[in-house]
Every structure is written in structure tokens, then in C-alpha cells.
Design a protein around this nucleic acid. Sequence first.
RNA 1: CGGGGUAUAGCGCAGUCCGGUUAGCGUACCUGCUUUGGGAGCAGGGGGUCGUAGGUUCGAAUCCUACUACCCCGACCA
Length: 489
Amino acid sequence: MAKAIPSRSEDYSLWYNELVKKAGLAENSPVRGCMVIKPYGFAIWEKMQQTLDQMFKETGHENAYFPLLIPKSFLNREADHVEGFAKECAVVTHYRLKTDEEGAGVVVDPEARLEEELIVRPTSETVIWDAYKNWIQSYRDLPLLINQWANVMRWEMRTRLFLRTAEFLWQEGHTAHATKEEARSETRQMLEVYAGFVEDYMAIPVIKGVKTESERFAGAVDTFCIEAMMQDGKALQAGTSHFLGQNFAKAFDVKFTTKEGKEEFVWGTSWGVSTRLMGALIMAHADDDGLVLPPKLAPIQVIIVPVYFKDEDLEKITKAVNPILDALKERGISVKFDTRDTHKPGWKFAEYELKGVPLRLAIGPKDLEKGTVEVARRDTKEKSLQPMDSIVEHVAKLLENIQDNIYSKAATFREENTKEANSWEEFRELVEQGFVYAHWDGTTETEDKIKEETKATIRCIPLNQTKEKGKCIFTGEPSQGRVLFAKAY
RNA sequence: CGGGGUAUAGCGCAGUCCGGUUAGCGUACCUGCUUUGGGAGCAGGGGGUCGUAGGUUCGAAUCCUACUACCCCGACCA
């Protein structure tokens, strides 16, 4: 079989880049750092969106849409926030082009300079909190639970398809609450929603935790995250949920009147996941033959490939396949019957493997004789002959099985590559391979030094951290528990 | 933004050092025949401003300069 993509062991980054392109997920655009998401890639993203959107609505949130452009002055309102994002903002300075008189084509019209420059949103806290000021007056207006699906832009130095692009798609939830406790519980609730989604749908186990001060979202009091392990042992932050305290309420003067008639600032949260999840999906499960999609997110869950010699054979196969198609669809399974005569079966097999379709059914003349179907699963590459009359049941069970198997494979991989380090030497060695739990003295200085020497960062202080007295791996100062270190995307 | 590399057909590459016919190979594409249970075979065919802009030269894919894009390694980051 012709190799479509490089292997992971040869060159992990190249494997990823080629896979994204060859599987038809995305490609680079004329503008550096931006990407074209192709139909197959977008279909996967849409499935994620639909699932998450439903989860948000079930937890009481409503969708809205705020503008792409934000007055520059808004960013200034919250000091930490501006510091966090200023370096990567694209700025709109003019509103008109004109034809150059010297024949250089279209040029920016210097007379059309904006009085106040606009920034392309890197995130929408400011423009949303500016609106909330008018939306919230009384405790009766709270809680305000809003989500938006949008694109944002962060002018990154180094970009990679899905993992880090200048423009990316995401959802951002922005909520306002009457009490600190309620906002805190919202923050944690959404973290649970994300963890549930990533584990149950994407089949990727995650570690829930709190970010250290240096990794915290600019403007937040606390940033919670879910961290996942990729197949090269590196960590990828799959989602974040921020407790904003009253920072944005104070910056944008969002107050409400309590039942008792007192005026108070509201408490805020924000939370988001992005197209970066696509990168996680790829790097957590895909192999040297291509994508491996969890059935719950696969645009096509079952592909049926006819194997035939003559047109009459295809007719007979089609007659046998049609009831299977109907029965599968009835059960809500997305299935495609690939009758193209422009490609041969072998070619199609390779193609659907590259695209990560969980199950493949092949039906040819021999199967019609014997009443069988060849069933091949993408995750294990196992092939078996199954009786045609019970195939629908079998497929339904297999899909569930594949979903579970992909998850446990990822979970096992993570277990095998997660270690505890108790000395600096041990730490340096272990952190090259995967996740390392180690004691830390709690200071940013130590965190920075460890990063400088090993390139590993504290991914989070795990929520399920067990109290354990120890000594900081780097300074030997006392520590109350282990934190999670890893190299990260 | 620093260091290194690359840019030649849709994709992957050779040719560049040492300038000289009509720029070549694989793959993909088109046509025909034979094929079809793991990316088919044969025959024929189409497709190139050699990244862009200058310069050197009788002559530039090849030499020189600048620029741009992409990849890898750093700094930055969801």
C-alpha cells in the first residue's frame, strides 16, 4: 500500500501537518496564520458544536452574537486584560481603499483614517461587559447566561493548523451573577461540561485543575482548565473556564440592586473551547494510516464499499445494501454507500482509513452467496465476516465498543506516561516523556526557572490533588501537594 | 523577532555547486483497452511567467541583491 503520510515515529510534526491536509481537514490560506477549514474538517467541528451547544442550552445558557470589532479604548479598561492581549491584537485603522493614481492598484486611502482605531476581537469580554452594563440593573436580571459562537483573532508568531492559528473559531460563554458563590459554581459547572464532552464524545481523558498565576487568563481571578495528553506525551489545554470575580464588573461599571436595595457589582465568569479541539482529536487518536475518529463525532460512522466485477453485481449488491442503509439510518447511525465507479475498492479502503471512518462494511459477490458482510473497524484494524441478517445490531454494538476502546486506549497511554518525580534529576528525565506530578514551592520564580531549564510548565494544580507534604523539586522548599508538569502545545 | 532550511506542473521531488538544445521524473489529471476482495496494468495525451522584483551576461531555474511565503529550532501563546 502506498504510504499517504509520514509515520509518527519518523517525524511527529510532519505526520500531524500532512494528516490534516491529506485527510481533507484544513489547509493554509493566503494569509499567514489563517486556515481554510475544508468540508470534512468542518463537518467534525459542526458535530462538536452541535453537541456542546445542546449542553450549554441544557445548563440554561442562550446564544447571542457580539461584533467582531471592538473600540481600542475598551481594551484599556481592565489593566491585566490589556496587558495579556495587547501584543497580539490586529488593528483596523482605515475604512476605505482607492485606486492608486500611480498605477499600483488599490491602496489604503490615507484620508480614510478612523478617528478611533478598532481592534479585531482576541476575545469578547470587553465588548460584552460594555453591553451588560445596560442589560443589568436589578437582581431580577441575574443570572445572565450568554454564549456566543464566533471567530477571534490573535496575531501569533508561530502557527499550526488547528493547534494555533491567528484566526480561530470558538465559543465563549460570558455570565454574570449576583453572588460570588454562584459565579464560582458556574465556573466549575462549565468545566464539568467541557470535561464531560471531551471524555464522552471526543474519547479523550482529561485532568481538571486550576492554572497557576502565570498561566492564568488575563483579567481572571481563577482559571480552571482541562488538560489532555497527546501521543507524543505533550499536554494540550482542551478547555478553560474562568472565574472573573468582579474585575470586569468594576472595569465596566456593571452594578445591580439587591433585594435589600443595595447597589453591588456583579460577579462574572467566562469559558471557551476552540477549533483547537480538532488538533486534540487528531493527536490523541490518529495513527500512521490516518485519522481515527470516535463514532460520536464521526461525520460518517459507517462506510459501505461494494466490491464487484460487473454492473449486474453492483445491482445485486445495491439490493442487499439498501435495507441495511435504511435500518442503520433508522437507528440514527450515519452511513454512506460509496458506489463511485471511479475508484476501486482498495483505493476506497485506504481513503476511508485516512479519514478515520470508524467502521467499514465491504460487500461483494462472495458475500451475497454466503449471506455475509466483511466488517473492518478502524481503531483496531480488525476484520471479520458477519452474517448479513444481524449486521445492524452488530454495527450498533461495534460503534459503542469502538467509542469505549478509543477512550481506554488513550487513558492507558496517559497512565503509562504519567509519573511522579521526587528528585530534580528524576524530574528532568521524566518530563521528557509525558506528565509528571511533582512538588512545587508555589512561587512564580521557581515555575519560570523550571520552564527555562526543561521547557516544561505547570499545566495545572489538579482539583483532585491529595494533600501530601513534600519538598519542591527545584528549591527544596516545603510543598503541600503535587502539581502537574508537562511540555505543552 | 533571532538562528537554520526550503520555494521548479494539483501534490512530492531531481536539475542549481560548474550558466548553454524544446526544464525532467514520480504521482494526480484526461482518452482508450484490459481490470476490480487492500491505493490496478499498458498505450497515448494535456498541464510550467522555475516564489516575486531587480541586477550581471550574447544567454539565467542555475550567479548577485532585495523582498515574500512556508517548514524546523528559540522567544510568545487557547
